[in-house]
Design a protein around this nucleic acid. Structure first.
Length: 626
RNA sequence: GGGCCCAUAGCUCAGCCUGGUAGAGCACCGGACUUUUAAUCCGUUGGCCGAAGGUUCAAAUCCUUCUGGGCUCACCA
């Protein structure tokens, strides 16, 4: 079935995306320092594709480290220091772009060191000493078991040009070890005074956090580790501000999010999360590209909000004197493209919803939406299984993951439950926990019977969340959806992904009704560990029914529903041009990344999550007026 | 927005209940040490205890307000 529905396209298609040929030597050096580039061997070209850079599975140990870290943060919640007004790390956030008054002893000492380097005739911000990432990797791949010891190194042994940020320093009087890191690769340098001579004086000024480079052969230390014995040593860049403590790293969540650059350097595993996120996005893109989907970019500034139920951000275009809203979803534009003949189309991009923040919600978030002509929501379930289990296998080496201690088996096919089944199961579990009567099939049959059941069991008194929803609910579909959200979602099986199918048409204004039951639509949502990861349906392409659904949204708004869709007549007109039978799906990229990186908060997978501005105007310490 | 909790050295944290001169580890600075793995040893330096107000002879500590943050509930993916 998947094979029929989702054929990978012919090679012809892939050729259209073949990588550009490498730049030629002359072009890159034009107008610049030709000697700088001439020094490197061809294989070391900075811009060349790297045959060694393969996307392998994450090591299990690495993932465990993430989990432990997340747990520790959880336990420490609320205990971290919050003041941000005096620290080395905090100070320049208070006055970005303004002369600092946060000189402290550490910074003054660093500046003195930088001056001392200048006084010695050296450049503390040098860029004339190339280092080879290729060499970094090669040193990293050397096996201490087979590498000959120091005494065995022949004269003229292979030398490596390595360098990066100093992450650890162990100094002795006349020798030292420095662990340097570049692009995730770490190499240990061994520096001896009698080998370096004058260069050792420069080394004396180095601290953790500075960038250095060295050239020399590799050897095995007495501790059995590979290191590069520096024959030549250079300072590349000196840092003015010191890094957080190496052992504890940066714990204060606010500092971590506000100064992600420091977090990335200092907190173990953070850089890896964002490298993995990039691989997730690349995988999604590659998967869709290979199957003939066209990537597009549709407007983010909308005049009519649609495609989801959410409140938008408002903005304004001056020249047109036009009020605009940041998009809450690209859906209606993408389907216009299906009408236009881009029958496999997708967009990966930011959406904006003007709502509260939580561990699961950031006001701007990244969504993949794709539409597939001549397909149904059933086809998309198969595609989703294939896509996500393949992604997990690519990253983990097997279709299995652990999220916050919960093991999830992603081997396909995944179980499917109807909304009615999931609601009944959830209510039955809740009934056992809380001592009320489980619903019968008759209770779930109509809006009236649901209302009677909820009243009889006093469910709105038990669940404040339901009470909120219930007020704006009318009819079977809305009431069932409210009960599913309150009682069903969080009680779904957690050890497997679950497709919840057959949503009520009343809560699915853009979905196609089921042929055998117009109260239901051809729609599913994918839940993993009780979290909604994807939402998909066969698209409604009957323009008259679409108009009725939009009108129903307006009626719901009048009843007090806060988040409803605008009536989009232009979209209905597009449907009148004719949209082929189509299925579409949205996948929350941030939430998917949370699962794959075992991160507890959406803020841990967004580089710069929205934070309140630092508006603390302190009386007596007012900033200069401008 | 509601509830609970938090803010002390560059970083990670004690001290607060029970008010009486501000502490530790790491980092930094000085010294010793030519194979370290959170190196070790010796000696220094470093704080408007988030801000403002109050109680008190005396406040990091008790009270109030403010600012920022975390968790959680509600809406949404």
């Amino acid at each position: 079935m998947p094979e029929r529905a989702l054929p990978a396209q012919e090679p012809r298609h892939r050729h259209a995306f073949a990588p550009l040929p490498p730049l030629r030597e002359g072009s890159a050096g034009a107008g610049g320092d030709a000697g700088r580039h001439a020094r490197q061997e061809d294989e070391d070209r900075l811009w060349q594709p790297d045959p060694l850079l393969r996307a392998g599975p994450l090591s299990p140990g690495h993932r465990r480290a993430h989990g432990a870290e997340g747990g520790q943060r959880g336990r420490r919640a609320g205990r971290g220091p919050g003041s941000l007004h005096r620290g080395v790390l905090a100070a320049d956030r208070r006055r970005p772009g303004v002369a600092m008054d946060d000189e402290n002893r550490l910074i003054a000492q660093r500046k003195q060191k930088i001056q001392a380097i200048r006084d010695a005739g050296l450049n503390p911000y040098a860029n004339d000493f190339p280092v080879s990432l290729e060499d970094m990797r090669r040193v990293g791949e050397l096996d201490p078991e087979t590498l000959s010891g120091e005494a065995d190194l022949p004269e003229g042994a292979r030398e490596f040009r390595v360098g990066g940020r100093v992450m650890a320093l162990a100094r002795f009087g006349k020798a030292a070890f420095a662990l340097v890191r570049q692009q995730g690769h770490e190499v240990q340098l061994f520096l001896k005074r009698d080998l370096l001579g004058e260069g050792f004086k420069a080394f004396k000024k180095i601290e953790r956090g500075d960038f250095v480079a060295a050239v020399g052969p590799a050897f095995v230390t007495r501790q059995g580790k590979v290191a590069v014995r520096a024959r030549e040593f250079r300072i590349l860049t000196m840092a003015v501000r010191s890094l957080p403590e190496k052992w504890h790293g940066l714990k204060d969540p606010e500092l971590r999010y506000r100064q992600r650059h420091v977090d990335l350097v200092a907190t173990d595993g953070v850089a890896e999360v964002f490298r993995t996120r990039a691989r997730v996005v690349a995988h999604l893109r590659r998967y869709l590209d290979e199957r003939g989907f066209v990537e597009v970019e549709t407007p983010m500034m909308h005049q009519v909000v649609g495609g989801a139920a959410a409140r938008p951000f408002l903005t304004h275009h001056n020249a047109l004197d036009l009020d605009l809203k940041l998009r809450i979803a690209p859906e209606l534009y993408l389907k216009r493209l299906v009408v236009g003949g881009l029958e496999r189309v997708y967009e990966i991009g930011r959406c904006f919803r003007n709502e509260g923040l939580s561990r699961m919600h950031n006001p701007e978030f990244t969504m993949l939406e794709f539409y597939m002509g001549y397909a149904t929501y059933t086809d998309l379930m198969a595609l989703t299984e294939d896509l996500i289990s393949g992604l997990v296998t690519d990253l983990q080496g097997e279709p299995r993951l652990t999220y916050q201690g919960q093991q999830v088996d992603l081997s396909t096919p995944w179980p499917r439950l109807t909304v009615v089944e999931a609601t009944k199961a959830g209510l039955s579990l809740a009934a056992q926990e809380q001592g009320f009567a489980a619903p019968t099939d008759d209770d779930l049959r109509s809006g009236e019977s649901l209302g009677a059941y909820v009243a009889r069991q006093r469910l709105t008194e038990r669940e404040e969340a339901l009470a909120q929803l219930w007020k704006a609910c009318a009819g079977w579909g809305e009431r069932l959806a409210a009960l599913f959200e309150t009682f069903g979602e969080e009680r779904l099986p957690a050890d497997r992904p679950v497709f919840v199918v057959d949503y009520p048409s009343a809560v699915s204004p853009l979905s196609r009704r089921k042929d055998d039951n117009p109260e239901l639509v051809d729609r599913f949502e994918l839940f993993v560990v009780g979290r909604e990861i994807a939402n998909a349906f066969s698209e409604l392409n009957d323009p008259e029914d679409q108009r009725r659904r939009f009108r129903a949204q307006l009626e719901a708004r009048d009843r007090g529903a806060e988040e409803t869709m605008d009536y989009d007549e232009d979209y209905c007109r597009a449907l009148e041009v004719g949209m082929p039978p189509t299925a579409g799906e949205g996948i929350g990229v941030d939430r998917l990344t949370m699962l794959l990186c075992d991160q507890p908060s959406i803020r841990d997978v967004i580089l710069f999550p929205l934070l309140r501005p630092e508006g603390a105007q302190q009386p007596g310490k007012q900033e200069a007026r401008r």
